[in-house]
């Protein structure tokens, strides 16, 4: 999973749903530790869409532009 630090608000919601407890949210960044099963729950719960498979930033741009069109 990748987290875009510029988008992430450090709220910890992702860590609350991670079934294998591998998400560490510090005061400055999110660190995905070893053992991620790529279940995708963290991406679904993130209030700002900052975490995902691949690059969250480019996905958000696409979604935003699609909506504008």
């Amino acid at each position: 999973m990748r987290v875009d630090a510029a988008m992430c608000i450090l709220c910890g919601a992702c860590s609350g749903v991670c079934p294998v407890n591998v998400i560490e949210v510090s005061s400055t960044h999110v660190n995905i530790q070893e053992g991620c099963t790529r279940c995708g729950l963290c991406a679904k719960v993130c209030p700002v869409g900052a975490i995902g498979f691949g690059d969250p930033r480019s996905k958000r741009v696409k979604r935003f532009q699609r909506r504008q069109a």
Binding site: N21, V45, C46
Partner: peptide, 22 residues
């Protein structure tokens, strides 16, 4: 909400997707 400490002690606090408001 991120709750890791209890899990390190063996209590499962992981939230299901339907059990969390974003």
């Amino acid at each position: 909400v991120g709750s890791r400490v209890a899990r390190w002690a063996g209590l499962n606090t992981a939230l299901k997707l339907v059990d969390i408001e974003s």
